[in-house]
Simulated scan of single mutants.
Amino acid sequence: MIIDRTEVQDINSFSRLESLQEVYGIMWVLVPILTPVVAITIGVLVIVWLEREISAGIQQRIGPEYASPLGILQALADGTKLLFKENLLPSRGNSSLFSIGPSIAVIVILLSSSVIPFSYNLVLADLNIGIFLWIAISSIAPIGLIMSGYGSNNKYSFLGGLRAAAQSISYEIPLTLCVLSISLLSNSSSTVDIVGAQSKYGFWGWNLWRQPIGFIVFLISSLSECERLPFDLPEAEEELVAGYQTEYSGIKFGLFYVASYLNLLVSSLFVTVLYLGGWNLSIPYIFVPELFEIQKVDGIFGTTISLFITLAKTYLFLFFPITTRWTLPRLRMDQLLNLGWKFLLPISLGNLLLTTSSQLLSL
């Protein structure tokens, strides 16, 4: 049997084409997933550098300056050090729970970032229930902290895990009620639609002015969810050494470190999306309609401008939680729970009722 050389070349070309199609298919799945992960990780490095520089300024001292110019790569150097440090396991602890806990804390926050719109066309998952998906996913994070505290077989770690669970339950309900109010004003639960609903009057159309009470409650609840001062009870150094992180070292401690700043970044992005107009410019449509319609511009230019606006608002807002770390004292546990259940919950519920009444009257 004689096989034509042309037929052999066609078969080889067809097999190469199939291989290329498989590679492109894998890249089509991985690139949209890995791109936000890499971008958010870079954002975390920027936050760590900002916090160290701002903290140094508040305390009138010199911040990091040896790891690259202005100490920009100091966070990367610290992460590399943790990567190569010895990974210790408690001798009488539960190694499975001890190892899974930090992973859950990071994965949950990365999943919740998938519904954040950085521009009109730059969002990983534009879902109709995107904002409530964030709340549902973020409620899983305390489970990882309890697993870490219990698996450490350490009284300080266990108390830290219990505090984290109690704190999360206390402040998730007011936060959810504030998000419900925003959804009612926007007539949608999609994060993209919520940003679009704030674009009618520019700066004065932001939900910050339409929901001032909700903004304050959301801000306090977000600080508590991020376990930032004055709400860092789960890892209070003076009382619990480091809380649920006490027995951790190496890369597992690094995961908790990354999760803390990831949570802060994601919460600040949600504040920008829900209350600060997202990627919208603060110029009303009647003055400069060409610039105002940047939210609907396709292509690299419009996406880049929108991304820059979103990140600029986010990092400007980050100055608030960073400065509170060095200006406010830590609350006691009973004060923290009283604030959540006796003050923020009734206020957020009343704000929701007022928002519902105004929407019904406007129909």
Rank of each mutant, 00 (worst) to 15 (best):
L20T: 10
E22S: 13
E22G: 07
E22A: 14
V23H: 09
M27I: 12
M27E: 07
W28Y: 12
V29H: 11
L30M: 15
V31D: 07
V31G: 03
P32V: 01
P32C: 09
I33T: 13
L34D: 07
L34E: 06
L34S: 08
T35F: 13
P36F: 00
P36N: 05
V38F: 15
V38T: 10
V38Y: 03
V38E: 02
I40D: 01
I42S: 10
I42V: 15
G43H: 02
L45V: 10
L45M: 15
L45P: 00
V46R: 04
V46A: 12
I47E: 06
W49M: 00
L50R: 05
L50K: 02
R52Q: 08
R52T: 03
I54P: 07
G57Y: 01
I58E: 00
I58D: 04
Q59K: 14
Q60W: 10
Q60S: 12
R61Y: 03
R61F: 06
G63W: 03
P64C: 09
E65S: 14
E65M: 13
Y66I: 10
Y66K: 14
Y66R: 14
A67G: 01
S68T: 15
L70D: 05
L70N: 11
G71E: 06
I72E: 07
I72T: 08
L73A: 15
L73G: 04
L73S: 14
Q74L: 00
A75P: 15
